[in-house]
């Protein structure tokens, strides 16, 4: 029975890693397209999303089966819970990559603003965070997970700067409004990508250390007792 259970857990992990590879590839291509302006790279991102969705359902079903048939506890239970949550995060990252690709195509003529606005820098940080989050799931690395949490603040800060920059651009030249509006949404998508990578890191910390770190800073600031 134990061997059977271990095999189920191993299959679940393998499926999540395969799904993560697909999402990583989607995000990589979309951000490369943003960086280079080569919109040809955006082709295939949307069609790949169906494969991600297939994994989403498959993993959800596997988790349900494991919970129903094996009733795992302690670290095994946390693993299944973490996989369920990471699965959702990755599926969203896939959708976001599709959205980024769509905006990249729409802003193909705004190369100068893109370069000036630090969006590329922000996108590379988000992409790096996603890669690290996948990496720390594969290697169960708590240090990597913690490093992602720190990076999220940098991306949030860049997003604010980019927003201000783009609003300023719109104020100075009405012809730039459409491009800048698309870029604000694009930046927002990239910021969400980083958020999901952060959530994945938090899920991995929960799995490895039985510690719920999500919203911790907010609770501390507001003196909210976390003794749930």
């Amino acid at each position: 029975m134990q061997e059977h259970f271990s095999q189920e857990i191993e299959n679940l992990k393998t499926n999540l890693i395969q799904m993560a590879s697909l999402v990583d590839e989607q995000a990589e291509k979309a951000i490369k397209a943003l960086e280079t302006g080569d919109i040809e790279l955006c082709k295939g991102i949307k069609s790949k999303d169906v494969d991600v969705d297939i994994f989403d359902n498959k993993i959800q079903s596997q988790c349900e089966n494991i919970l129903a048939l094996f009733q795992p506890v302690t670290i095994d239970l946390r693993f299944v819970i973490a996989v369920m949550m990471i699965n959702t995060q990755l599926e969203r990252c896939g959708d976001i990559s599709v959205n980024i690709a769509r905006r990249v195509k729409k802003t193909a003529g705004a190369r100068e603003i893109i370069k000036e606005s630090q969006i590329i820098q922000m996108a590379n940080s988000a992409k790096e965070m996603l890669k690290l989050s996948i990496d720390c799931f594969i290697h169960s690395s708590i240090d990597t997970a913690n490093s992602i949490l720190i990076k999220d603040a940098e991306v949030d800060s860049l997003n604010k700067q980019i927003f201000k920059f783009l609003v300023q651009k719109m104020k100075t030249d009405a012809n730039l409004v459409e491009d800048c509006a698309h870029l604000i949404v694009l930046a927002r998508n990239i910021e969400r990508l980083a958020d999901h990578a952060t959530n994945i890191a938090e899920n991995i910390i929960f799995y490895l250390e039985a510690n719920i770190v999500a919203h911790k800073m907010k609770f501390q600031k507001r003196n909210i007792d976390e003794d749930f």
Partner: peptide
């Protein structure tokens, strides 16, 4: 005990190891 016991021995037992 069933989520995060202090001792590995306990964890191994409740996990069925």
């Amino acid at each position: 005990i069933f989520t995060s016991p202090e001792l590995k021995q306990t964890e191994d037992y409740v996990r069925g190891r």
